[in-house]
């Protein structure tokens, strides 16, 4: 299978690649560009560990091919903050111990950032009782929207506490 050329714009920087068209966005990040903060937990869209933002929307990067993303703005955990300068969501996960092994954590954090944005933009969810009104910033809404991100260490209560710290909302 002959390679295709693609330029991936990741965390604001262009990366020109020649890729086997079967390479997923996840494997392009991990194996070709060594952005290994994005994790492979199931490679079939069931665990959320590979969550990245593409043009501001969160997606499972294992379920999309890299060559489909020419010109897209891709944001990974590496683009959110660094150990020395953590994003407020990363800092909240640290303080609340919203992780144990840390493997699902980048995906949880990318999802959490996107969830708050989705609520802010008024995007309804399965548990939004009145889809005509802006969705509330409730724990119920956040839990529902975070449910695509599995955590086997089961840090769920601490993750919700971290998101609450950042959003300033929810009982």
């Amino acid at each position: 299978m002959s390679d295709l050329f693609v330029t991936l714009r990741i965390n604001g920087t262009d990366h020109a690649l020649s890729l086997d068209p079967r390479v997923t966005l996840l494997d392009a990040l991990r194996e070709h560009l060594h952005f290994t903060g994005t994790k492979k937990g199931c490679d079939q869209g069931q665990c959320g560990a590979c969550t990245v933002l593409v043009n501001g929307r969160r997606i499972n990067s294992c379920l999309t091919l890299a060559v489909m993303h020419e010109g897209d703005e891709i944001q990974t955990i590496e683009g959110l903050g660094t150990p020395e300068h953590l994003h407020p969501m990363q800092q909240a996960f640290l303080e609340r111990d919203g992780y144990q092994c840390g493997y699902c954590t980048p995906g949880q954090i990318m999802s959490a950032v996107a969830v708050l944005d989705e609520i802010e933009r008024g995007v309804p969810s399965h548990v939004t009782h009145d889809i005509g009104a802006p969705p509330p910033l409730s724990d119920e809404e956040v839990r529902e929207r975070m449910s695509g991100n599995l955590c086997r260490c089961s840090a769920y209560p601490n993750i919700i506490a971290a998101i609450r710290d950042v959003s300033g909302g929810a009982a």
Binding site: R30, T36, G37, E78, P83, D97, Y99, G102, P106
Partner: peptide, 22 residues
Amino acid sequence: INRTEGPRKVAGQVPYSAERRD
């Protein structure tokens, strides 16, 4: 106290086995 490796874990900077470049 916070986990000592925590800042690197939440920043995606901790290399797990399949990510090792050694």
